[in-house]
Design a protein around this nucleic acid. Structure first.
Lengths: 147, 147
DNA sequence: TTGTGTGCAAAAATTTTGCAGGTCA
DNA sequence: TGACCTGCAAAATTTTTGCACACAA
């Protein structure tokens, strides 16, 4: 974990950005909560609880920077805020989100089946795919139990 | 087209909502621009140009109502606003959006290949899928030409 | 030292809400 | 008539920005 943070922060420096405590702190929080798809406000709440003094504007600016550097992905679950998740490399980005329309829970599933679809689109539409974003809406296992 | 509007508006009345000029007008605009994924503000601009007097709050409330009645889908292209597209029935919802990261254009493609993926998820995750949302990011045909 | 980064507060942008008056059924 | 609907303006929410000061390199 520490090694991982160091790795990202070195990449950040190589790109010409400065190593600051705020950036390290925010990166650490994203890593510690990588299943949670945190919003800027949530990251800010966590920092604040830990008695660290980081302004919300810095959180917004930092997460935008992390997105530009491909440290994180920005995602949207239609709840009015942007959320961020750690980018663990391309092979790991082949996961999709299952959003329960009853309880709002978000589960991740890993699947590669999209490649067939992507090949098709590249051929038929002349569109070169760089990335994708797939969300399934439905009823999760837990909510079905409760009926 | 007129028949289609009548159809939707009758369904609206059957659900206990009133037939108002504003609702018809907004529905008409969504239909007239069904390839455009309009935002509330854009709908409001179009209404205003046509000298019709509809407040922006009414546009927001009406599109939310249309979403609840399944007249439209709400979609998000990460540009900070909610957008809406006409729901032409389930068989027609098997289309995906290709978003060009260079020029921002949004193209629709129709494909059914997702069913295989969905069957898999239902089986392995116990998650009953009701709907999906698929976006591909990349470079569109036109932008590739320009290089 | 110098440009970059930060915190604060103000501003901007998007969406929601309260309320008085208007309209549909 | 009476409940629902609308427009307006104010409020709420999320995000961005300007600026003075702080800090990394």
């Amino acid at each position: 974990m520490e090694a991982m943070i160091k790795n990202y922060m070195e990449k950040l420096q190589r790109e010409g950005y400065k190593y600051t405590n705020q950036r390290e702190e925010i990166l650490r929080i994203i890593m510690d909560n990588k299943d949670d798809h945190l919003s800027c406000e949530e990251v800010h709440n966590i920092v604040s609880k830990e008695n660290k003094d980081v302004g919300i504007a810095t959180v917004y600016r930092t997460l935008q920077l992390f997105e530009k550097l491909n440290f994180v992905y920005r995602i949207n679950f239609d709840d009015g805020v942007s959320r961020y998740e750690l980018n663990l490399g391309t092979e790991n980005h082949h996961h999709h989100h299952l959003i329960c329309t009853k309880c709002g829970s978000v589960t991740e599933v890993k699947m590669d089946l999209l490649e067939l679809l992507e090949d098709n689109i590249e051929k038929e539409e002349g569109f070169t795919i760089q990335d994708h974003n797939v969300k399934f809406y439905g009823i999760c296992k837990n909510c079905k139990k409760e009926n």
